[in-house]
Write a protein that binds this DNA or RNA. Sequence first.
DNA 1: ATCAGTGCAAAAGGTTTGCATCTGA
DNA 2: TCAGATGCAAACCTTTTGCACTGAT
Lengths: 152, 152
Amino acid sequence: MSADRAANDIAASFDTYLRANGLVRTAQRHAVVAHILDGPPHFDVEELVDLVRRERAGVSRATVYRTVGYLEKAGIIRKMDFNEPHAHYEVAARCGHHEHLVCERCGTIIEFTDPLLEERIRKTAALQDMDMTKHRVEIFGICRKCREKKRS
Amino acid sequence: MSADRAANDIAASFDTYLRANGLVRTAQRHAVVAHILDGPPHFDVEELVDLVRRERAGVSRATVYRTVGYLEKAGIIRKMDFNEPHAHYEVAARCGHHEHLVCERCGTIIEFTDPLLEERIRKTAALQDMDMTKHRVEIFGICRKCREKKRS
DNA sequence: ATCAGTGCAAAAGGTTTGCATCTGA
DNA sequence: TCAGATGCAAACCTTTTGCACTGAT
């Protein structure tokens, strides 16, 4: 299926990144990438460590952190900030570019895209004479479910 | 002048917040607020500690952190994320709501507002049936100065 | 064989907390 | 007076790093 195809492409592009930077393709790095690609759309490092260790005990936190760092530099994942002490990541290639709504009560994350909003952002960067490398839109609030819960 | 006026208003609103929450207006808290209001538009806690201590030695980091926490809850300052390990803050009431452009090379922060962008964000929240409490737009890139520097 | 990668544990950096003491209302 | 605030230092949590050992090419 196409999901596997995309995952393969991503894994391959990481291999390319590694080779291009004189880095080595190790079993640990492969395991980390595999678990990211077939895990949930958003993750943090601790979850990833658990996930990887479930199948291959003894992978060190340090290696996971280091691999995540490379994946970020390679542009394969991107770091997000949800106002928590630890970083969250998502697979950049998955579903293309999008922004986030975060429920402050239950932590649910809703993704959305909005071409008009994107255009405004591009325009703003251009106006300020800035070469945009990336951007981020986060909307915080209370989702409907939580509003209803409160009522009861 | 009007800046002093605004600062007084903010200080007063913090006093109100304190009273409303059964908290006490201490000299330390006053010093922290005063320095925020007459310091730079963006700051981090470490800078604030230095600033406060310059005039009143021995104010503890803990107290500054605690006070900053209250100021955030009171809605007087807001936390920002510039992809650095420590938090940055800005005075919410100053200049009204705005978003940020951050140069990844020199760290310069440019503020901007865009009503169309704000409207898009409001619409999105409404569409997803979310009661928006706050939002954030950050654009990262390379500013013109840094682009020119690179050339030389 | 070589040089990068790994695991471990320690260090680091930002932030929070427990507790004895002090203080504003 | 006395709940709440402070200062100090220790604790915490996430992330990074030094180093001896392991492993890929």
